[in-house]
Simulated assay, not measured.
Amino acid sequence: MFFEKHDDYKYNGLAWLFLGVPTSDTLLYKEELEKMKAMAPDNFRLDFAVSREQTNAAGEKMYIQTRMAEYKEELWELLKKDNTYVYMCGLKGMEKGIDDIMYKKQLKKGEQWNVEVY
C-alpha cells in the first residue's frame, strides 16, 4: 500500500496496525513499519504492545487489547463505519482478549471481521 508506486491508484484510507510481541528483540519489521509511518503519517498508524516490557497506567502487562483500550473512543468511531475492516492474525491464545473488547458480532455480520489464528 505504501511502498509500491501505482500511477492510477493512491491509498487514501487509514491502516492502523497494533503489533504485539513478548519482548522488543522479537519485534519483526520494525524499521520497515516505522518507515511506512514516516512516509504516510496520515494513512498509517502503528502501535506496539510489548507484554514483558511495557505496562499500562494501571500497571497491567501491555497486551494488544491493553494497547487498543487506550484508543477505545477513537477505535469505536472507526468500528461504527461500514468501511472499517478488522484483520486479526497471530497465536490462537490472543484471540479471546481481542474478542472481549471488540464488537465482533456486528463486524462479522457486515463481513468486516477477519481472523487467522494458529
Rank of each mutant, 00 (worst) to 15 (best):
residue 105 K to Q: 10
residue 99 D to C: 08
residue 40 A to F: 01
residue 16 W to L: 00
residue 33 L to F: 12
residue 82 D to C: 03
residue 60 E to Q: 04
residue 44 F to W: 00
residue 61 K to E: 06
residue 43 N to V: 01
residue 77 E to T: 08
residue 104 K to P: 08
residue 27 L to M: 14
residue 34 E to T: 11
residue 14 L to F: 03
residue 99 D to I: 04
residue 102 M to E: 10
residue 61 K to S: 04
residue 75 L to Q: 10
residue 50 V to A: 09
residue 83 N to I: 07
residue 107 L to D: 03
residue 80 K to L: 10
residue 55 T to I: 13
residue 54 Q to G: 00
residue 31 E to Y: 15
residue 57 A to P: 13
residue 111 E to T: 07
residue 111 E to K: 10
residue 70 E to G: 09
residue 14 L to N: 00
residue 105 K to L: 10
residue 90 G to S: 14
residue 73 E to S: 11
residue 25 D to K: 14
residue 17 L to F: 04
residue 92 K to Q: 13
residue 102 M to L: 13
residue 63 Y to W: 11
residue 56 N to Y: 07
residue 75 L to R: 06
residue 99 D to Q: 08
residue 84 T to L: 03
residue 81 K to T: 06
residue 73 E to I: 11
residue 33 L to C: 03
residue 68 M to H: 04
residue 46 L to F: 00
residue 20 G to W: 13
residue 22 P to A: 12
residue 68 M to K: 02
residue 112 Q to R: 15
residue 13 G to Y: 01
residue 114 N to Y: 10
residue 64 I to T: 01
residue 13 G to C: 05
residue 46 L to S: 01
residue 32 E to H: 15
residue 56 N to G: 05
residue 51 S to K: 00
residue 20 G to H: 05
residue 65 Q to V: 06
residue 64 I to C: 11
residue 107 L to N: 05
residue 45 R to F: 12
residue 98 I to Q: 12
residue 86 V to I: 15
residue 57 A to D: 07
residue 92 K to P: 12
residue 94 M to V: 00
residue 96 K to G: 09
residue 74 E to T: 06
residue 94 M to A: 00
residue 78 L to F: 02
residue 24 S to D: 15
residue 43 N to I: 03
residue 97 G to K: 13
residue 87 Y to I: 15
residue 89 C to W: 06
residue 32 E to L: 06
residue 12 N to L: 12
residue 18 F to L: 05
residue 49 A to I: 14
residue 77 E to Q: 13
residue 11 Y to V: 00
residue 89 C to H: 02
residue 92 K to W: 07
residue 73 E to G: 02
residue 43 N to F: 06
residue 106 Q to G: 14
residue 11 Y to T: 00
